[in-house]
Design a protein around this nucleic acid. Structure first.
Lengths: 148, 148
DNA sequence: CAGTTATCGTGAGTAATTCATAATAAGAAT
DNA sequence: ATTCTTATTATGAATTACTCACGATAACTG
């Protein structure tokens, strides 16, 4: 069972505020949302909240490791609640949609080198780039269109 | 043998300009440089060149696939000349140093899934986060310092 | 060598994010 | 419950990385 948001916030040594609860709720509904999307979602409950406050809250929750921040190339930072399971992401080059990808292999050798050029590797992050189902369909239609 | 820069530019269907040659030269000397670093390097040969022109040149060369653009989280975009060999990067969380990492395994299963959640994956990008040798040394010294 | 057009230079403009500081509210102590 | 302390949020400006529009310049073509 998922712990109550309020409890996990408290467990992290942070004060429980309506803003933080609202942000966590928003991220449940929007699994890979950028700051703006979170802002819009939270505004439905708290109309007056500013974008800057969302930034502050997201930074605090990220710092406390209650949420995770991902920064795909060419797009603003995204946040997700699913943490601690070292999953990766597939991003659509067409529309920017993000999909969680579990690392199917328990310990892929290429992903956990103990050292690389003297580096002490702590984590490995994989980003898959490709086309989501919707964009594949659009693409196929466009290609087929050449013949008509 | 590496082809002459001028030839590869021409081969890509682009005009050969002193600015483009200077940028390619700069990237030979600075394997993972951001736009600013390239600008400073090029200015030694062409004092008047503006940062915006560097942006334009880097964009053109990236578009032509003569250089590759990487965008590590939390840092400006970096450019490198080494392309076409699908290598990855280790980035130091301490100082931001970047190190090329060859994919030791010929075909790591986790890295080339034919599909993931319906996505048609085109490329996989791996970023290793850790500490470079210099920062490991600093870190060790700092930790040791706690006892003194 | 002249013409066409890709490329570069200039300056302004934008998006994402951060910072400083004042106002507010959460949790502890009474 | 009430007050106190201090973490947290609000406000507004500032910064960074980057893009865009358009006139000037210089590559390649014939």
């Amino acid at each position: 069972m998922t712990p109550e948001p309020a409890d996990s916030i408290r467990a992290a040594g942070l004060r429980v505020t309506t803003q933080r609860l609202a942000v966590l709720e928003a991220l449940d509904a929007l699994p890979h949302a950028d700051t703006d999307a979170v802002h819009r979602a939270v505004q439905k409950q708290q109309p007056g909240i500013t974008l800057q406050s969302i930034y502050v809250v997201l930074a605090a929750l990220t710092e406390a490791e209650l949420i995770r921040r991902i920064e795909p190339a060419g797009s603003p930072a995204l946040y997700e609640r699913r943490i601690g399971d070292n999953h990766h992401h597939a991003i659509c080059t067409g529309c920017g949609a993000v999909q969680d990808v579990d690392c199917a292999v328990g310990h892929a050798p290429c992903l956990t080198p103990s050292e690389a050029g003297g580096f002490a590797i702590a984590t490995a992050e994989v980003t898959y780039w490709g086309l989501c189902p919707a964009c594949q369909a659009t693409d196929a239609r466009t290609s087929a269109g050449r013949n008509t």
